[in-house]
Simulated assay, not measured.
Amino acid sequence: MEISLADLQTYRGAAPDEAVVVVDVLRSFTTAAYLFRAGVRALLLAATPDEARSLVRRFPLAATVGAVPGGFPIDGFDFGNSPAALRNVCLTGREGVLCTAGGVRGATVARQAAVLLGGSLVCAAATANLLRRLDPPRVTLLLTGIYADRDGDEDIACAEYIMAHLRDQAPDPAPFERRVRESTFGRRFGDPAYPHLSQADMDLCAQADVFDFAMPIVRREGMMLVVQEGRWRA
């Protein structure tokens, strides 16, 4: 298995036999994992708030979740891009509509991959386990958190942790968890200057292997859906 890293600026598209893990630790695919914990059956990905609202017209019971660049909540949505806001929520049997800057964009640019997964630290080992079972010839870990003002080390750390699992190195999660907290974006969480970025979110995002499922991204009827490994049926 050939393993490589790319970011949204360097990625050139998926080969037909390639697996891609779209890594967004802060916070898209951490939030997605907590949405599955809350009971959603599938997450529909929306590139824009208007697209999200259009999806809600098709799925009127869907919960809208998301943020604009910088992590600010979207006006009129049920939830921000916040795993902490979902800890005590029950959404059993409902769809979710997820609209975020990094994670959704990454899924869109890699949509032709033979295997496409959403990745974050909370489900990293499960993601690696699924990739080992599928055994694709090539895996790209696509980093979504690198911007002019952000080093993206939260995603690099997660990707390197997944890589270590794929290479059967039994990595200690603690250094990778620490890097999430100490990344450029990570240090904004809990800072009063960024009230929309809570310490509670960071405390959830920086925990490795909370969940034992991976999150495949599939295409159905012109839509992209994140699903919970082993529990979703069309």
Rank of each mutant, 00 (worst) to 15 (best):
V210W: 04
P216W: 06
D151G: 03
L141I: 08
R220C: 06
R181L: 06
L134K: 12
F213E: 01
G118H: 01
T127L: 08
V139K: 07
V109C: 02
A170I: 11
A157T: 06
L141V: 08
G186C: 07
T144N: 05
D155K: 00
P192M: 07
R167F: 12
Y194F: 15
G106Y: 08
D153K: 12
P137G: 10
R132Y: 02
C158Q: 00
S120P: 06
D168L: 15
C205D: 09
E160T: 01
M163Y: 12
T127M: 06
L134Y: 12
L166A: 05
R187H: 03
F189C: 10
D172T: 08
F176P: 01
R150L: 15
P192N: 10
A107E: 01
C158L: 05
G145C: 08
L166Q: 09
F176K: 03
I162F: 04
R187W: 11
V122H: 03
A157V: 02
R179P: 04
C123Y: 07
D212N: 13
M163A: 15
A110S: 08
D201Y: 02
C205W: 00
L166V: 02
Y194N: 10
R179V: 11
A157G: 05
D149M: 10
C158W: 00
G119H: 03
P216A: 08
P216F: 06
V109W: 01
R167V: 11
M202G: 01
T144V: 07
G145F: 05
V122D: 02
L141A: 09
L117A: 03
P171S: 11
C99P: 09
D209Q: 08
R111E: 12
A174L: 12
R94E: 11
H165T: 09
L98D: 03
S120N: 05
L197C: 05
A148Y: 01
A208F: 01
L98W: 01
A193E: 14
P136M: 10
P192C: 10
A193G: 12
L117C: 09
D191F: 05
A128P: 08
R219I: 04
G106P: 10
D203E: 14
L130D: 11
A208T: 02
A157F: 07
F176M: 08
R111N: 09
Q112K: 13
I146Q: 11
E182W: 00
P192Y: 10
A101W: 12
L142R: 00
L166K: 03
V97C: 04
R133S: 13
F189S: 03
I162D: 05
A113P: 01
R94W: 04
S198M: 10
R181S: 10
G222M: 03
F211Q: 07
T108L: 15
A113Q: 00
Y147Q: 15
P195G: 10
G118N: 06
R133L: 15
L130F: 13
Q169P: 11
C205E: 07
Q207L: 14
I156E: 13
